[in-house]
Design a binder for these strands. Structure first.
Lengths: 227, 227
DNA sequence: AAAGAATCGAACCAATCAGTTCGATTTGAC
DNA sequence: GTCAAATCGAACTGATTGGTTCGATTCTTT
C-alpha cells in the first residue's frame, strides 16, 4: 500500500538493473514453475517447491510475480505462445492440399502430444472451473486459433476449386480431431505415459487426410447427409 | 483392516442398520460431493464443504468413506457407471449404419456435453497426473469402452458387406471424435458455458456421419492415403 | 575498493484443511 | 416407552501452505 510512487521508477535510478526485471531470472523461475506445475498440478504445487526448483529464494519469487495465480497464468501464456509460433510456421503454403494437410497435421499432433504440452493442457483444464478466463484465453489462442488457420487455408483451396467445403471452420476442426484420434485423449487421461511414435502419428494423420479428402475432395457429395 | 469379517455382515447383528451402510445416506453424500467436486475441483473442495452440501456431519462422512481420495474415486466410478449404462443402451442394433450411427452419435454427444459429465471430465483430467490409475480406469471404462462398442458394431457391418473398413477401432474413434468436433473441446476449457443445443448436436453428428460414409461407405477407396 | 541494490535464506504468520474426538441428540427395533 | 446404535455438531490437532519480513550475502557499477 505505502509504495514510493513519487520517485520516477521508470528506469533504475542510474543505470542499474531493476527490482524484478532480469529476463534471465524470470525465465529461470518460469522454467522451475513449469516443472512443478506440470508434475503436480496447480494446487499441489507449492511456492516453496517452485522456488527450490528454480534455484531462487522465495522472496525473489514474489519480487518477480505477484502471487501464485499470476505466476501460473504468465507461465501458461508463455507455453501457449511457443506452441502458437510452432503451429503457425508449420502451415506451409503448399498448393497441394494432401501434402499441406499431411505436413501440418503431423507437426501439430507432435507438438500437442509432447510431454509438456499435455501436462499444461491437463492443468489448464483442471482449473478451468475456477479460472474460466484462463481456460477461455488458452482455448481461443490455442486450439481455436489453429483451427482458424486451417480454415483460412481451406478457404483458399475452395476458392481455387481444389476442395468442396461448405463450412470450412467445421472442416478444419474435424481435420484436427481426426489427426488426433486414438492419440491425444488417452494421453490427457494419462492412460498412455509416452508420446506416440512418429510412425504412429504419420499413420493416423494419413488416415485423417484420406478421410478428409474422401469427404471434401473434388467428386464427393458436398451437402450434409440425411437428417 | 480389522473389520468384523466373522459375523455374517450381510444384515446387521440383529436386524439393525450398520455403521456406514445406509445406501440412501451414501447416495446423499455422493450427491453433495458431486456438487462440490465439480464446482471447485478436487483440491479446492474441502471435506467440510462436502459435509455441508450433503447435509451430513463430518463424522458421518468419515464413517461412510475412508478419506477424501476414496470418496472422490467412488464418486467418479459412480458417474462413469451411469454414463456407461446410457451409452450401451443407446447403441441400438439398427442394420442401417447411417441410422444407427446418427442415433448413437447424438445420444453420446448429448451425454458427454452434459454439465456434470464435463465437470467430471475436467476434474479427472486435472488429477490424472497425480492419480494415474484413476485416469486410466476412467478412460478405459469410459471413452475407450464406447469406442470398442462402436468398433464391434462396425465389425458386423463390415462382415455384412455394408461398410469397408480396415481398422474398425480407429474408425470408431474417428467417428466419435467427428461427432464432437467444435462441441466438446471448448466446453472442456470452459470457453463455452452451456451445453450445445440439440440442433447443433444433430448438425455436427450429421456431418460426422456424412464424412464417415464418404470414407467407409461402399464405393470408397479403402486403403490409407499416400504416405 | 566501495557503495548500493538485488538476492538469498531462514524464520515467521495467519489461514486452511484433512481427519479425529466426544458428548449430546436422534432414530428405529423391540 | 426403552435402549442401543447411528448420527450430529462443534471443537480440536497437526500439518501444510501462501505470503511476508529482515538481516546477511552477492553482484554490478563506478
Amino acid at each position: 500500500m505505502s509504495e514510493i510512487s513519487e520517485i520516477p521508477v521508470k528506469t533504475g535510478p542510474r543505470n542499474r538493473r531493476i527490482a524484478g526485471a532480469d529476463p534471465d531470472k524470470r525465465r529461470q523461475i518460469l522454467d522451475g514453475a513449469l516443472q512443478v506445475f506440470t508434475s503436480r498440478g496447480f494446487d499441489a504445487a507449492s511456492m516453496s517447491d517452485i522456488a527450490a526448483a528454480a534455484n531462487v529464494s522465495k522472496g525473489t519469487l514474489y519480487v518477480y510475480f505477484e502471487d501464485k495465480e499470476h505466476l501460473f497464468v504468465d507461465l501458461i501464456q508463455r507455453e501457449r505462445e511457443t506452441q502458437k509460433r510452432g503451429a503457425i510456421e508449420a502451415l506451409n503454403e503448399d498448393s497441394d492440399p494432401v501434402r499441406a494437410l499431411s505436413k501440418f497435421g503431423f507437426c501439430i499432433v507432435r507438438v500437442i502430444n509432447d510431454e509438456l504440452a499435455v501436462s499444461a493442457h491437463r492443468v489448464v483444464i483442471g482449473v478451468a472451473e475456477r479460472m474460466p478466463d484462463l481456460g477461455r484465453e488458452f482455448y481461443e489462442n490455442g486450439p481455436m486459433l489453429g483451427s482458424r488457420l486451417i480454415a483460412r487455408y481451406l478457404d483458399r483451396m475452395v476458392a481455387e476449386g481444389k476442395l468442396a467445403i461448405d463450412d470450412t471452420y467445421l472442416a478444419a476442426v474435424q481435420f484436427l480431431d481426426l489427426c488426433q484420434s486414438t492419440l491425444t485423449r488417452p494421453r490427457l487421461f494419462n492412460a498412455v505415459r509416452t508420446p506416440p511414435s512418429e510412425d504412429e502419428i504419420r499413420r493416423v494423420v494419413g488416415e485423417a487426410v484420406a478421410m478428409f479428402m474422401a469427404r471434401y475432395g473434388r467428386g464427393a457429395g458436398s451437402q450434409p447427409a440425411s437428417r
